[in-house]
Design a protein around this nucleic acid. Sequence first.
RNA 1: GCCCCCAUCGUCUAGCGGCCCAGGACGCUGCCCUUUCAAGGCGGUAACGGGGAUUCGAAUUCCCCUGGGGGCACCA
Length: 469
Amino acid sequence: MADVRVRFSPAPSGSLHVGSAHTALFNWLFARHHGGTFILRVEDTDVTRSRAKWVEGIQTTMAWLGLDWDEGPVLQSTRFSRYLAAADQLIASGHAYECYCTEEELKARNEAAMAAGRPPGYDGHCRDLSPDERAALAAEGRTASIRFRTPDDGVSTFDDLIRGEVSVEWTHIADFVIVRSGGTPLFFLANALDDLEMAITHVIRGEDLLDSTHRVLALRAALGAPDRSVYAHLPLLVGADRGKLSKRHGAVALEDFRDRGYLPEALFNYLALLGWSPDDDREIMSRDELVAAFDLSGVTHSAAFFDYQKLDWFNGQYFRKLPTKEYEALVKPLLPSVDDPGLVSMIATTTQSRVVTLDQVVEMSDFLFSDPEMTPETQELLAETPRVAEVLDAVITHIEQCDWTVDGIAFQPVIKELGLKPKQVMPALYAAVEGRPAGLPLFDSMHALGRERTLDLLRKARAAVPGDG
RNA sequence: GCCCCCAUCGUCUAGCGGCCCAGGACGCUGCCCUUUCAAGGCGGUAACGGGGAUUCGAAUUCCCCUGGGGGCACCA
């Protein structure tokens, strides 16, 4: 497939939904796999307002994910008059007609149809008006919308690259509007014409658009398409209740994932494996590997649940794979400004295997920047720990005299000498120093804090031990 | 209501008539490692929605049912 041309067509909005990103990703993988062209085309036929800022946001987000485009962004609003000319052409060829029904009339007739058990949709009211009838309706002050005339009978069939043959009887597809009575073209028309004129060869999109493909194909044919472009419909992404992925399931805008500290490579990898899998068992795959392995025939047919837990796992995997220096560079800007490179490096090396999303680094290392409070939880923990006063005294003595290196601080022997196991008393010591029963390695943390602050924290804990104080 | 699509562990999926009393991954869980927690290593748990049919043989083919999703706009 030498001349593959695909496009990703987001609606102009303030953010990029993960579902859209998923579609974009598959289009991109397909284009790159076949050495084709990937076009960014923003769907907006409204010329009355500028959405420059939103378009810019879409570009930024796509670039962040690593989806580069070869052409565009093409804005539909710049092609407004072209769409209207096409509509006129369709009227002239008999593929479309002017409809004088008002919105209220349509609504009333739709409701009546539903009540009578018939399907909603245009009833063909203005289908075959004579020129005189049209003139009379126009004289009433009505303005016409333009409707596409769908076939009266027969079956519409097309081969979906993922699902195979899909067909439906034309009687189920009503005539649809392509130009509003206000004179503005609808997305449907714009989309079909753009795909045609941009020589799009493959249209890869969400399954929610499956039914409308029959209409697009009919429109394309009426517009004079020499052949059909090939369609492929991807499984939808769903949330916890198997419905559309929405905000109440968690983050849905790609920008949110970015802001929460997800790595684009991890998101990319995870998204690529939602609804698709390679021939082998690989899961952690680079962009290049994904491009090389990608194949539409490997796409699943059923909706995929967007699993935040698995995404977290991917993100952790990617953090661990990162060279420590690169990881450190990501961590540094998040921390309170410090001029101690040793501290930053200590935080980086100790958090790299512990972090799921980057923003957790701040929480994990907070005790290094401000002393933890003596909380009821910590007090309870101290009270529950066996021989805690003894342990604290011994550790304090050790810290007072030891070599001030991480190895010198290591006080397991002190615990063992008391006949205790580290596991029995460590949570209390972590709480005393870090403010929580588990956290960054204690000896490194103490070293970073310095002898005086460490002793201060340990003595505070000692003073908080109830009973034999 | 009508039309369309879909159906394997809780989740993402492998499977395209015998290699499957179903494989991998996440999750959960046990053990090991270990200064805590992670990470890592080694195990465990758990699925072919139901019913017919075809076949020597069905997760895999066909039909029905059930279930889920999507669509039916002068939205994109």
